[in-house]
């Protein structure tokens, strides 16, 4: 019993970490319809910057949020404005290749500057274990779990309760009509891309005390994030959140009972099943795909 409880807790911890990484990806896809293959690399850059700033300024890793989140927000806006927007009227495959190209360029830029070494951000107490009675967790994991709930809740409130949020949803649901309301659609796309990248920036900072970073780190996380985004129903933030928790649990249980080498088989096996039987995602309604195009 204790074992099961502990596996559940660890699964949920891992799941909320995946949720943080996936939320920005699904937001960008849902609103701008761009599949951002460079998403993981923005996270990697965020983790690298966290490492550099904490090491050289000697501050707590979480304090780097103040620099990194605005920086990644601006970076996201620039990518949308100068890379994606000029391709708006070309074939969507061209946009995909553009983000894949951006991803490869970012990885190689980091490889060139920093090599392929692992960098460890100081854990600053975030690797302390907390005894929850039936399970033990790391302080940093609890922070990630709480923050992922705030992030999903905050984004949901932003999208439903604010004028800007409603304009973002309107743009996603009918770009043409949104323009006719007076909404500047290119501006909405820039802001959305910025927010999505800022979200992965938050994830990057919170992950840094727990995980080492190297040029390839983004790749390992983003692959799972794509599974989650599809499973959550392409573009649905709450869908992605629950899908991430499910993947976290699957990861935790298969890792224990089948061995960690088989975790990937289970996760991607589920991914294939979803693509075959419920391509609109576990929570998505089938028709949602109709206005994804």
């Amino acid at each position: 019993m204790e074992l099961i409880f502990s596996l559940i807790v660890n699964g949920l911890m891992l799941g909320s970490l995946y949720a943080m990484v996936s939320v920005g990806l699904t937001l960008i896809f849902g609103i701008t319809k761009v599949i951002n293959f460079a998403h993981g690399e923005f996270m990697m850059i965020g983790m690298m910057l966290t490492y550099i700033i904490t090491t050289y300024l000697g501050i707590h890793p979480y304090l780097t949020l103040v620099f990194i989140v605005p920086l990644l927000f601006v970076l996201g806006i620039l990518v949308q404005k100068y890379l994606i927007e000029p391709l708006r009227n070309s074939d969507e495959h061209v946009q995909i290749f553009a983000t894949v190209g951006l991803s490869i360029a970012m990885i190689n830029l980091v490889l060139m500057i920093a090599g392929s070494d692992n960098f460890n951000t100081p854990s600053s107490g975030m690797r302390h274990t907390l005894d929850l009675g039936l399970a033990t967790v790391l302080t940093g994991q609890v922070v990630i779990m709480l923050c992922s709930i705030f992030m999903v809740g905050g984004l949901h409130l932003f999208l439903t309760r604010t004028q800007m949020g409603r304009a973002i949803r309107a743009t996603a649901q009918n770009r043409n009509a949104a323009q006719l309301m007076g909404i500047n659609v290119s501006r909405i796309n820039m802001v959305t891309f910025g927010i999505g990248i800022a979200c992965v920036g938050i994830a990057a900072v919170l992950l840094s005390p727990l995980y080492p970073v190297n040029a390839q780190t983004g790749q390992s996380f983003v692959l799972i994030a794509f599974v989650i985004v599809v499973m959550g129903g392409l573009g649905s933030i709450t869908g992605a959140f629950f899908a991430a928790l499910i993947i976290g649990l699957v990861d935790s249980f298969t890792g224990f009972y089948l061995g960690s080498s088989l975790k990937g088989v289970a996760v991607f096996g589920i991914f294939l099943m979803i693509l075959i039987f419920r391509p609109s995602g576990l929570f998505g309604k089938a028709r949602k795909l109709a206005h994804v195009s």
Binding site: R166, R169, A170, Q173, N174, N176, A177, A178, M181, H291
Partner: peptide, 14 residues
Amino acid sequence: QLFPEMTVLENIQM
């Protein structure tokens, strides 16, 4: 060309 997944009121607000 309404915003299909918004309420009528939200559409009107837009």
